[in-house]
Amino acid sequence: MKPYQSIPIRDCGEPLIAIPLVQFSVETPHPYQKLGASYGEKSPYYLRSKVIEALIQAQTYLQQQYSGWKIHIFDAYRPVAVQQFMVDYTFTSLLKEKGLTLDSLSETEKDSLWQQVYQIWAIPSDDLTTPPPHSTGGAVDITLIDNQGQLLDMGGLIDELSERSQPNYYANHTDNLGQTYHQKRELLNQIMTQAGFLRHPGEWWHFSLGDQMWAWQGQKAVAYYGRA
């Protein structure tokens, strides 16, 4: 169990609704759907209604500083089944990347690989008291595009299994490029926190509002979004 999962949930019953995608930048088809993840009747571009309101507000803050820039939504709502799909996909990809086969691994080696996977992926729990953040409709993975429609280079990819995923990885870099990456990440964090979100401590792209992680980080007594 991760520390934030100890926070009790009192779901407020707020609806999960479609994000007004015309206001943002998105990738079509959705990145995980391209890999084969099935959402069934659900959509990855859904969030709780007040989370969408806050996301629109964050983009307003962005455009007050940089006219024409937009939030690029990489991922939002994620059913537990999709969480499981992506966890399994990441583990299999890690095996291939390292030139390993499952049968050749000791239990210790398997555990080590799983620990790497779970650095950025929440456990796909069916327990209603410990839902993956994205399964609540209160978490969103984002980056930014400029007024030319180009994705900003943030010094690392979303879902990257490396130290570069740490939000402050470039904070102490003295070179110009490293400082530029850090400034872009800080801009993203600034507009989101100004709108009420909190950033995942280990992922520069992941922000939440109302779920257990948000409550834990903000020292709230309860979370008000459970599994949607």
Rank of each mutant, 00 (worst) to 15 (best):
M1R: 14
S6Y: 14
I7W: 05
D11V: 05
E14H: 06
E14C: 01
P15Y: 03
A18M: 11
T28R: 08
H30S: 03
Q33I: 15
G36Y: 00
K42P: 08
P44V: 10
Y45V: 05
I52N: 02
I56Q: 08
A58F: 00
Q63H: 03
Q64W: 06
H72F: 07
I73V: 04
V80P: 05
V82A: 09
V82N: 09
Q84K: 11
Y89F: 15
E97D: 14
K98C: 04
S104I: 10
S112E: 13
W114Y: 12
W114N: 06
Q116L: 13
Q116V: 10
Y118F: 15
P124R: 12
L128N: 13
T130L: 01
P131T: 00
S135L: 03
N147A: 15
N147T: 07
L151Y: 14
S162R: 04
Q166P: 02
H173A: 01
N176W: 09
L177T: 08
Q183A: 14
R185T: 10
E186H: 06
N189V: 09
M192I: 08
Q194S: 13
H200R: 11
F207D: 00
G210F: 07
G210L: 01
D211I: 04
A215F: 05
W216S: 13
Q217L: 14
K220W: 09
G226Y: 07
R227V: 11
R227G: 12
